[in-house]
Every structure is written in structure tokens, then in C-alpha cells.
Simulated scan of single mutants.
Amino acid sequence: MKILILCTGNSCRSQMAHGFMQSFNPELTVKSAGTEASGKLNANAVKAMKEIGIDISQHTSDSVNKYINDEWDYVITVCGGANENCPVFTGKVKHRLHMGFDDPSHATGSDEFIWSEFIRVRDEIKETFQKFYKEEIEPQL
């Protein structure tokens, strides 16, 4: 089973979703990418995942172009706000899905509030992707 998770910068939401999917089943082939890949991971995303025992620190922030010629069972976009354009993947895909989440890297305010946004979004991603895994992926394995 091959799953590609896309967003714009590939530094935060798609990386967290990638980490969760891989933690649910290490046998899955999971990659994440962005249309405007930042080239680095968001430090708070790495910290938020580490806090619950998932290490994404070795992930890379890659351009979607790296995967455009591959075949995928699922391509999932995770962009959220109305001000974002979700990437369109033009490669060979069996199922295209959208699961939108706010971008915690755009949060402003106190350090405590910004951190709480990373935790909130992380937990939303976990819940949504866990449901997806149990209902869609597991029955196919």
C-alpha cells in the first residue's frame, strides 16, 4: 500500500500525518511532499510528535515533483484554510482524498498559545488519520 500526503510547505501537517500513518503500520509505504516544499521540518511539529513518541526528525521536506511519476494507492491533501491552495497531484492515483487541517505554523500570540495550536492540530491529525487507517486501509491488508 502506497500513500502520499501532500500540503504546500511539507514542513508540518503533512509530516505529522506521515509520521502517524507510518506508526500505525510500518509495512506501509508512506511519503509526504509539498508543492512549495520548504526544505526543512518545522521544529514545533517535530517536538509535538516526539512528545507522543513518534520521531519524524529524519523526514525530509520534498517537492511533489519527486513522486509525480510513481503510482499511488492514496494521495491525501491536508491543507486547511481558505487562503491555501491545496496541491493537485497529476500522477497515477487510485484514490484522492482531502483531509483539511489548520496550519499551526501560522498561529500568532503567546508561546503557550502557539504551542497549544500545534498540539491541537497534531491531535486532530492523529484522530482523522487513525479513523482513515482503521476504516479504509486495514480492511485492504
Rank of each mutant, 00 (worst) to 15 (best):
E36G: 10
H106A: 14
C7H: 04
E127V: 02
S38I: 02
T8S: 14
F20S: 07
M21L: 15
T90M: 14
K92G: 00
M99N: 02
D123M: 01
N65W: 01
P139S: 01
H98D: 13
V88T: 13
F24V: 05
M99L: 15
D102M: 05
M49N: 05
C79R: 08
C86T: 03
E112K: 14
L41W: 06
K50T: 09
V88N: 04
I119R: 07
C86E: 13
K31I: 00
L28F: 08
I56T: 11
F101Y: 04
N25P: 01
G53L: 03
T29V: 15
K134H: 11
R13K: 11
V64G: 00
F89T: 01
L97N: 02
N10M: 09
P139A: 08
Y133L: 06
D70V: 00
Q140K: 15
R120G: 01
E135W: 03
E135M: 05
S61G: 03
V64L: 12
C79P: 04
I76S: 06
C7G: 04
N69S: 14
K92E: 09
D103K: 05
R13V: 10
G53Q: 07
A48P: 11
N65G: 06
Y67R: 09
K131S: 12
I56Q: 06
N25Y: 03
R96W: 05
M1H: 09
T8V: 15
W72G: 04
S116R: 04
D111F: 04
F113Q: 09
I137E: 11
F118R: 03
A82M: 12
S32T: 10
R120H: 10
E138L: 15
K50V: 00
Q140R: 14
G39A: 07
G19P: 10
T128F: 00
I68Y: 01
I5L: 07
P26M: 03
K40R: 14
W115S: 08
D73T: 14
F24I: 08
A48G: 10
E27P: 00
F24L: 13
L4G: 01
I125V: 15
R13C: 07
S63G: 12
I52W: 10
M1G: 09
I52M: 07
H98E: 12
E136S: 10
T128S: 15
N42E: 13
G53W: 07
I3G: 02
N44W: 02
K66F: 01
L141Y: 02
I52P: 04
M16L: 08
V93M: 07
W72L: 01
I76R: 00
A17R: 09
H18R: 09
I54D: 02
A82S: 13
H59A: 07
